[in-house]
Write a protein that binds this DNA or RNA. Structure first.
Lengths: 243, 243
DNA sequence: CGGTCCTTTGACAGCGATCAATCGTCGTGG
DNA sequence: CCACGACGATTGATCGCTGTCAAAGGACCG
């Protein structure tokens, strides 16, 4: 059932914004990376984090590759004066730490109760040396992340608050594990969304209220959205506000 | 002399924003990619473009790798309603098209009179298959682009108009080929800068005027800036507005 | 039941967008 | 060589969106 809705969502054609795979950080699905990580199962460890706990920090030596098993992880940067940028969210199946330079470029923090698997990176790289197809997958992973980041760049560069929120909702809904029927899980808090979209928490609330007023969504509670008009949401997200 | 200024600029320590190499798209400098491209010299072609001419389009099959020889290229996306996002600028030595998926993710357009070399991508990939160090360089290239993009993401996510402009100026000044003494070349037009920073052309003008009023820059003409107080510019760019 | 934290809503201010006019530069043609 | 026109840059006036500050509402936990 969940799969159904996701496939429908993915099948909807896009003009330009979705020329990338819907899954951001190819994990078990569609790429060999997950299956190669499986080989490292015996030297991996399973870790649990409470909301707001730190998994790794920006600048740490990138010694591990992490795969999210449950919950939601935010990748973010903290600036001295208190500003924060949430670069991305990771969900079950997503992987962090592949293809990094020497250090992690972000903090990784649990956005809610989270379980991750940690794999030693050197072992992984060693495997990657061997298999040609594997290397190709790693490159594709990086290329996909780059595209995903550029898509987000567009959102921050060109869109209004309401459009940004619609983009965010659409992107979340493209992940089959956050959408159940028309009901969308919001694993992260409003502040996380705000810092991801370059807005304030108040503006997020108002944008949600506005979408509700327009009949595009329902808000049964703070961590759930019901998508009542997905085509209209996609239209907003893609900058064709109704034309 | 130009090299001198650049080295000084690079040597200034950063808290967080410059953990990436100053050169965005490692070309001839520091990476083996340029030297591997050299091997393809005999099957390459030299192309010239006038300002605003298109080099390749978003969605085109990514058949070539381009290296900028002279001028300035903008990588951008056009949205039906007229909005435009300039994702990045390429300068001499920079390379586009490495590690792409099947198609280009942007339009590439000449921001001024530009010369580029085009290399067949399949030949390049074939070379990459062979040498292990080469593959490593390609991965590092992708990782560096990703970091650079994330840095820009932060600018768009968290900074004010003046801070964005300062970030842009600082980033340009870190490239030795755009800085001569304290004089910075602005190869691109105001509209290009605006679309890169997610602002309007009027706001760019006002931000420049404001920096001039603060004594941080001089504006001898529209395509040149004199950096009068680089530390203050860096402070602005990094979000420590004077503290 | 009380407290804490997050969310939501309201009032207001400010930054940047929009609209419009002027200025400056460059290239062209007289 | 100068006049003119086109285009981009600059400045001004005003508007609206989003940020800020404040308070109330709601969920969760002890």
């Amino acid at each position: 059932m969940a799969l159904n809705a996701a496939h429908i969502a993915r099948a909807v054609s896009d003009e330009w914004s979705c020329r990338e795979p819907a899954v951001a950080f190819p994990g078990a699905e569609g790429s060999a990376i997950g299956e190669h990580l499986e080989r490292l199962r015996d030297c991996s460890s399973r870790l649990r984090f409470q909301r707001n706990e730190t998994i790794f920090r920006e600048g740490d030596r990138a010694a591990h590759i992490y795969r999210v098993v449950g919950g939601c992880v935010r990748l973010c940067r903290h600036v001295p004066d208190g500003r924060r940028q949430v670069a991305d969210f990771l969900f079950p199946g997503d992987i962090a730490g592949i293809g990094e330079l020497a250090t992690y470029p972000f903090d990784a923090e649990a956005a809610n109760a989270t379980t991750v698997m940690a794999y030693p990176r050197d072992r992984f790289e060693h495997l990657a040396e061997g298999t040609s197809r594997f290397r190709t997958d790693v490159m594709a992973h990086l290329a996909a992340r780059l595209r995903r980041t550029h898509r987000h760049l567009f959102v921050l560069c060109c869109q209004s608050a309401k459009e940004r929120l619609a983009s965010f909702i659409v992107r979340l809904s493209e992940r089959y594990d956050t959408l159940y029927g028309d009901s969308l899980d919001l694993a992260m808090g409003r502040q996380d969304i705000a810092d991801h979209l370059g807005l304030t928490i108040e503006t997020i609330c108002r944008a949600i209220a506005s979408l509700r007023a327009d009949g595009l969504v329902d808000v049964p509670n703070a961590h759930q959205l019901v998508l009542k008009n997905i085509p209209a949401l996609r239209a907003l997200a893609e900058g064709r506000g109704s034309q």
